[in-house]
Computed example of a mutant assay.
Amino acid sequence: MKYRSAFDIIGPVMIGPSSSHTAGAARIGRVARTLFEKQPKKAIISLYGSFAKTYKGHGTDLALAAGLLDFDTFDERLPEALEIAKQSGMEIIFKEETAIPEHPNTVKINLYDENGSEFELIGISIGGGSIEITELNSFKLKLSGEPAVLVLHNDRFGIISSVTTIFSKHQINIGHMEVSRKDKGETAIMVIEVDEKINETVIEELTALENVTRVIRIVD
């Protein structure tokens, strides 16, 4: 694993006893909330490995709830996140899974809105508050939680070139990019991590592209 700065080793500013079990968990929850684009009505959170064994003692449950409420890692409301979630009408169910994951700090989050629409995300906390999102609605991907944009699109010739041209025009450097699709010619998703925050003009231009169905911005 490569570290970009000393803060990747020391860890983030946070409330909680563990950067991996608390700060990392809060960031995973917050990314899930961002991708869902609203506060969920219900969340089923499946914990694996070390998360499943120690989540109550390390405050992982509080951190995940805080992230779903869109709280940052240093938000002083984090210790009361479960109660705040309950008061806001969000039901949260935790499940301790026995399956052995590839990484010990793994969580699967299933979110539901008032209409029953479902969203699924799998994330891992890799230490020092750093995270990776490894799966999104059955799409395999790698998303670190840095400033990024997800572009959902129809799998058509030229769409990748059209998207990268917009980033080039605005002189935005792409640090990491990958494309995943369910099948040839069907729905696909681009994950694009960049070195700076993406402004609204870029989002509008991406959204206007033919065959792009949805654009989601993630700001760390």
Rank of each mutant, 00 (worst) to 15 (best):
K2W: 04
K2E: 13
S5H: 14
F7T: 13
D8A: 04
I10E: 11
V13Y: 04
I15G: 05
I15P: 05
G16A: 06
G16R: 03
S19D: 06
T22G: 09
A25H: 04
A26D: 06
R27G: 02
R27P: 04
I28W: 07
V31N: 11
V31P: 12
A32E: 03
T34V: 11
F36K: 08
E37P: 00
K38E: 09
I44W: 02
I44C: 08
I45V: 15
I45M: 02
Y48G: 00
G49I: 00
S50Y: 00
K53P: 06
Y55I: 00
H58A: 08
D61W: 07
L62S: 00
A63L: 04
A63N: 06
A66K: 12
G67S: 10
D70Y: 14
F71I: 04
F71P: 06
D72H: 12
T73A: 13
F74C: 07
L78S: 05
E80K: 14
A81V: 07
I84N: 09
I84R: 10
I84A: 07
A85N: 09
K86C: 05
Q87D: 14
S88R: 15
G89Y: 10
M90T: 15
M90F: 11
E96Q: 15
E96T: 15
T98R: 11
A99I: 08
A99L: 13
I100R: 15
E102M: 12
P104Y: 01
T106K: 05
V107P: 02
I109P: 10
I109A: 10
I109Q: 14
N110Q: 13
L111G: 05
L111R: 10
Y112H: 07
N115W: 10
G116A: 12
F119I: 03
L121A: 08
I124P: 00
I126N: 07
S130G: 11
I131V: 07
E132M: 03
E135I: 03
E135D: 10
E135A: 09
L136T: 03
L136Q: 02
N137G: 08
K140Q: 11
S144N: 13
P147R: 10
A148Q: 15
H153Y: 04
H153K: 09
D155P: 04
D155F: 02
R156V: 15
F157P: 15
F157M: 13
I159P: 06
I159M: 01
S161L: 13
T164W: 03
K169V: 09
Q171L: 05
I172G: 09
I172P: 06
H176E: 12
S180E: 06
S180A: 15
K182Q: 09
K182W: 01
K182R: 11
T187W: 01
T187N: 09
M190Q: 01
V194K: 09
E196Y: 08
K197V: 08
T201L: 07
T201C: 00
V202P: 00
V202G: 02
V202Y: 01
I203H: 00
E205A: 03
L206E: 00
L206V: 00
T207S: 12
A208C: 01
L209K: 03
L209V: 02
L209R: 02
N211F: 15
T213F: 02
V215S: 09
I216F: 05
I218G: 05
V219K: 13
